[in-house]
Each structure stands twice: as C-alpha cells, then as structure tokens.
C-alpha cells in the first residue's frame, strides 16, 4: 500500500511511503498520485520503503516542473489519500471545482501536531502563487486559529480533530476551521493591545489581535460538531 507521508509544496517535494517491498512496477502504481501532485508543481517526489522504520528512499526529480501557480486544465478532480498512522494528518482531500482548488484536511487535535498542520496549510497556500506576502499572512492567521483551538479548546471527546477547509478562489481565499470542542463565546475573548504586551515583556497574547488584523472577514459558528471559524482574505495581484 502506498500512502502519502509528507508533502512540501514550498520545496516542491512530496514523499510517498510504500509499506513493504517496492514492487518492480512501483512507478506505474503511483502514477495516479504523481499526476495529481504534478499539477501542484511538485518538482521532487520520493518513495520509500517502510518496515517499521524508513529503511530506504528513492527520489524522483522532474526538471520540467518549476515553482509557480499551477495551471488548472481539468474541470473537476478529487483525490483522497490516507496517511500513515504515525502522522497527525488523518486525511486530506483535493478537489478542483470550476478551476478553484479546494482542500480539506483533518488533523488530530494535539499540540504536537500543530507544526505539521501549519506546515501543511502553508504548503497548500503556496500553490496559489503570488503575492507571497498575503499568503504568508493568511498562513499565519490560520496557524493562530488552529493554535488557539488546540491550546484552549475543550474537547468533547478525548480523540478530537480539526478540519481545515480552504478554497483558493481567484482574488480571494476563503476557508474555515472546524473543531470538535465545546461551545466558546468569542465575545469573551478580548484582544490585548500589542504595545501593552510589548511594554510588559509578555511573549504571549498577540494571537487574537493577529488573527483579526490579518483577515478580511472572521465569523464564529457553533454546530453539531463543534465550533467553526470561517474566514476570508482578498489576495490582490
């Protein structure tokens, strides 16, 4: 079974793991996945053999692929990839709808998974292309939303998760983060003034202010699953 272990769109790399001996026709077997991620402008794909621990890795490089926004040629395509159990990434889906890439990803609600979640979101946003500054800010805003949920959210069940949904539309990126936590009242969250935090030598407390400053719209809902933070940011060319 071949699974996606890691995807690094900034570096143009993805890593697939084959749990068992690599068959002779392994390249053909992963061609479907390769085609999908080729559209994400991946320049390097590695395939490894996993037997408890990674023992051997092969890397493919495609010099035809260059960084930049992918060119959408298909009207719709959907891919779902199950990741290995060791990852905090439970699953991710990629859909191309009328030329608009839509990503859905589910991560475990765990502090030690935040870095992986954030990196993944950053890689997805990187596929949008320029201007990079807006994408960096959106990446940071989504990171802060997820960090606040993971740190402060009261999970309804022990094994909670976070769903991140991103729609990379022309001129605007919309999305939401859904948790599996108890209801929280966003009006009870009072953002601190950054200058006061700085004067007090406080290292924390900038998150909420940052989220509000970096996003164009921000909305909180509570549904049958948990809290959903919906957001959008215009991406001007």
């Amino acid at each position: 079974m071949i699974v996606l272990r890691h995807i690094d769109l900034l570096a143009g790399q993805a890593e697939f793991i084959h749990s068992g001996e690599i068959p002779a026709d392994w390249e053909e077997r992963i061609s479907g996945l390769v085609d999908v991620f080729r559209s994400l402008q991946l320049a390097e794909i590695s395939v490894g053999v996993l037997n408890g621990a990674l023992q051997r890795r092969f890397t493919l490089r495609n010099p035809e692929l260059v960084p930049g926004r992918k060119q959408d040629s298909e009207s719709a395509a959907t891919v779902a990839v199950q990741t290995e159990a060791a990852s905090h990434l439970l699953w991710h889906r990629w859909t191309l709808l009328d030329g608009c890439p839509i990503y859905d990803v589910r991560f475990l609600h765990a502090m030690d998974g935040l870095s992986e979640l954030s990196r993944y979101v950053g890689l997805l946003l990187a596929t949008y292309g320029h201007p990079k500054s807006h994408l960096t800010q959106l990446h940071i805003a989504v990171h802060e939303i997820c960090a606040n949920i993971i740190e402060h959210g009261q999970r309804i069940a022990d094994a909670g998760h976070l769903d991140v949904h991103l729609e990379l539309g022309e001129g605007e990126i919309r999305g939401w983060v859904q948790d599996t936590c108890k209801w929280f009242d966003p009006t009870m969250v009072q953002p601190a003034r950054s200058t006061q935090l700085a004067a007090s030598r406080l290292r924390r407390g900038y998150g909420i202010t940052l989220i509000q400053a970096l996003l164009d719209t921000l909305h909180h809902d509570f549904n049958s699953i948990g809290n959903r933070i919906t957001f959008s940011k215009g991406i001007s060319k």
Binding site: S118, T136, I140, E144, A147, R201, L202, R203, G207, L210
Partner: peptide, 18 residues
C-alpha cells in the same frame, strides 16, 4: 525567515526589551 507565529513575535519583542 519564512514564517513567524504570535509566539515568535512575542519572543522577539521580549528579547528587544531585555
């Protein structure tokens, strides 16, 4: 530097003060 979180910002600001 490719990415900085609120904690990273707070750390730099605190170091500046120190």
């Amino acid at each position: 530097l490719q990415f900085i979180s609120s904690t990273g910002i707070g750390t730099i600001v605190a170091v500046v003060g120190e």
